[in-house]
């Protein structure tokens, strides 16, 4: 797994961004950017070259699903890996995310191993 890639972490809760950053740093990733909702994430995507997006679903202003659809509609990020990490665990949520082009899906609460395993799958 290439740990020099640039990762954007999107979650409205700073606690969750910190937990994800801790896990990603333990794996070896160093280039980590943060956004607290979908609109801020779009700004970060425009200003940077992001290799992987990890996003929550349920956020104010713009949800993770709306962010995913915007990302997939853009030329630059149409094929960029996108991991949804969310408490939204109902079947319909997963179906909607898959239809919108999500690369993989992790349900909160999660272990560090679950995040690591999903990243290995989508970054191989």
């Amino acid at each position: 797994m290439n740990t020099s890639i640039k990762i954007l972490i999107v979650d409205d809760f700073a606690t969750m961004r910190r937990i994800l950053k801790n896990i990603l740093k333990q794996i070896g990733f160093k280039n980590l950017l943060e956004a607290d909702d979908g609109t801020t994430a779009l700004d970060a995507l425009e200003k940077n070259d992001i290799d992987l997006v990890i996003s929550d679903w349920n956020m104010p202003k713009m949800t993770g699903l709306e962010l995913l659809k915007s990302v997939r509609a853009s030329k630059k990020y149409a094929k960029t890996p996108f991991l949804m990490v969310t408490a939204e665990a109902q079947k319909q949520n997963v179906i909607e995310a898959v239809q919108a082009g999500v690369s993989n899906y992790v349900v909160k609460p999660f272990t560090a191993e679950a995040i690591s395993d999903k990243l290995k799958k989508i970054l191989k």
């Binding site: 700073a14 606690t15 969310t86 408490a87 909160k108």
Partner: peptide
């Protein structure tokens, strides 16, 4: 406060599942 919000969110999500 932020952590309590996220914990509440996760309890809600798991229970709804």
């Amino acid at each position: 406060a932020d952590a309590v919000g996220e914990l509440t969110n996760m309890v809600s999500g798991q229970a709804r599942k």
